[in-house]
């Protein structure tokens, strides 16, 4: 209990400072804790915030799955076949620094506005960390493990499943954890592509955008920011626990 209080001390002090400074120097429209709490109560009470987060999480989930479905097999291929890697590496490396938000216009042109566009942008953001970690994981596996299976007469295709994949799994899971973080970070940008929707239907990113450009509710924007942060933390904790449970042999 005491530890818990000590850990809460910093945020509590910051919130108090924020309130005091806003009261002393801020304009009436500047967000302050009291107003943010009121706004949060309203948004939670109406169910809009929960709907928005659930909608966004759904998109992140599908985008993340799409990224895994492409990045993991591709990473295994690139990590195990030198020729494939040499061909694809320049392409990967030149796209990697292009932020997810930068592909927004293209995606909207191709897919129009809607959930699909948001899912693709999220998938793009999650794709690179998963790919890079999978390649590294496959390349770094202990060569002798493959040789051991080889000397036991295990056929090549089976070796992929029973040696290569489990040996690279810890690295793949690390990539997935980073990728999911990136996907969630990209959701706010991605949902600019969704098009304006009432209430929470557009997702948390769209909700923020509406607060910004239509209703100019700064307190609402702060509520969204805090909600995004809390969800990110929870997601990461869940994934970390899942990771430890999935690879008990690996000291990640």
């Amino acid at each position: 209990m005491k530890h818990f209080l000590i850990r809460l001390a910093t945020p509590i002090i910051l919130v108090i400072l924020w309130q005091l400074l806003a009261d002393a120097f801020g304009s009436p429209r500047m967000p302050r804790p009291s107003a943010v709490v009121a706004s949060a109560t309203k948004l939670i009470g109406s169910g809009d915030l929960i709907t928005a987060l659930a909608t966004s999480l759904g998109r992140v989930f599908f985008g993340f799955m799409l990224a895994c479905a492409i990045a993991i097999p591709l990473g295994i291929l690139m990590g195990s076949a030198r020729a494939v890697e040499r061909n694809l590496d320049p392409l990967v490396e030149s796209f990697r620094p292009v932020a997810a938000i930068a592909i927004l216009p293209l995606v909207i042109l191709w897919l129009g506005t809607g959930s699909m566009a948001a899912i693709v942008i999220v998938a793009y953001a999650a794709f690179f960390p998963i790919l890079i970690n999978t390649i590294a994981g496959v390349k770094r596996i202990d060569h002798n493990l493959m040789r051991a299976a080889y000397t036991m007469g295990v056929p090549p295709a089976t070796r992929m499943w029973v040696v290569l994949l489990p040996a690279a799994l810890p690295a793949i899971l690390v990539g997935m954890r980073i990728g999911l973080g990136m996907a969630w970070t990209a959701i706010i940008a991605a949902e600019l592509a969704v098009g304006a929707k009432a209430g929470g239907e557009g997702g948390i990113g769209q909700m923020m955008f509406i607060f910004y450009s239509y209703s100019v509710e700064l307190n609402g924007i702060v509520v969204c920011m805090i909600a995004v942060g809390i969800v990110a933390l929870v997601l990461d904790r869940i994934l970390r626990a899942a990771l430890h449970a999935a690879v008990p042999w690996s000291r990640l």
């Binding site: 202990d142 002798n144 493990l145 051991a148 040696v163 799994l169 042999w249 690996s250």
Partner: peptide, 10 residues
């Protein structure tokens, strides 16, 4: 039997 055992960690 390999010099470094080559055991499967998983």
């Amino acid at each position: 039997m390999f010099q470094d055992y080559a055991l499967f960690p998983w």
